[in-house]
């Protein structure tokens, strides 16, 4: 069995700060990490490999420094890693990104057919959740998003049974391989890297593919040219014209502040008093 896992290197969004005066992103010193959602998919792929054998190839599109994300994946137990990197990809939106990744996976398939593609549910920087569905569509794979559990995999029948999160419940689905799966967060826990795998990751001869190596001929489908969406404006949100009324009183004591607040609030919003009575009653 051959599994391809698509991962992305993202800035740790918890550590992104906006410059208070210029409203620009302060990128310096923000560490790059493997998109956390991708790790649930990688772990699930590794579990399938543990159970059924085969190979796990990790695939990442990004700048040269994204190789760190791929080495991380190798240290967890992935077998092969390919970095698709080319200046021509700069400015790609989700449509162009899914085209580039699908092209690369088709190229990977020339060496070894792919049974399952995993992708992250979404990234923490773009948050779109569109690249997984995009790859599935371009490769004509069965799409299974928000998977909470893989129940069964029958390699002879080439069938997979799994749980998919729907809005008001869980769907139990059975489908045919090849398919593309995005895992729901919290469905498994990433294993620790073993010492031998960490050594292997450090020495692993990472494959770097440019657009030609990834089998991309039509450059109008990648980068800015291949991206229908255009960012017309980036801005900091406006403060409301009226700032919060800061509650103050002579004593500054929390108790008096609270009473002052409630008096003001219930005078201005009498319905709220009723609402609160209802909720508490």
């Amino acid at each position: 069995m051959h599994i391809v896992v698509c991962i992305k290197q993202v800035p740790d969004s918890a550590q992104i700060r906006v410059h208070p005066v210029t409203n620009t992103i302060m990128r310096q010193g923000v560490p790059a990490i493997v998109n956390p959602y991708d790790l649930f998919s990688l772990e699930e792929a590794l579990r399938l490999k543990d159970k059924f054998g085969g190979r796990v190839t990790v695939l990442c599109m990004g700048p040269p420094q994204a190789e760190a994300a791929l080495r991380k994946a190798i240290s967890f137990g992935a077998d092969d890693a390919i970095l698709v990197t080319d200046r021509a990809f700069a400015g790609s939106d989700t449509l162009a990104t899914s085209f580039a990744l699908a092209s690369a996976i088709k190229k990977i398939q020339e060496d070894m057919p792919v049974d399952i593609v995993f992708a992250g549910k979404q990234t923490i920087d773009g948050d779109t959740a569109q690249v997984g569905p995009g790859i599935a569509k371009r490769m004509d794979l069965q799409l299974l998003t928000y998977v909470s559990k893989i129940v069964d995999l029958d390699l002879d029948k080439r069938e997979i049974t799994l749980h998919r999160r729907a809005e008001g419940g869980v769907q139990v689905l059975r489908t045919k391989l090849p398919c593309l799966i995005t895992m729901l967060e919290g469905t498994n826990e990433m294993r620790f890297a073993t010492m031998p795998n960490m050594f292997r990751a450090a020495r692993y001869p990472l494959k770097q593919w440019d657009k030609d190596a990834a089998g991309i001929e039509d450059v109008s489908k990648i980068g800015l040219k291949g991206s229908p969406t255009i960012v017309s404006k980036v801005f900091a949100p406006q403060a409301k014209t009226v700032r919060a009324e800061i509650i103050d009183c002579e004593s500054k004591h929390p108790k008096d502040l609270s009473v002052t607040l409630l008096t003001k609030m219930f005078t201005k919003f009498p319905n709220l008093a009723e609402e609160i009575g209802k909720g508490a009653g």
Binding site: A14, I16, V18, I230
Partner: peptide
């Protein structure tokens, strides 16, 4: 950017 700015897309 992880919810630190807003952007308008067309």
């Amino acid at each position: 950017f992880g919810g630190s700015l807003l952007c308008t897309i067309v």
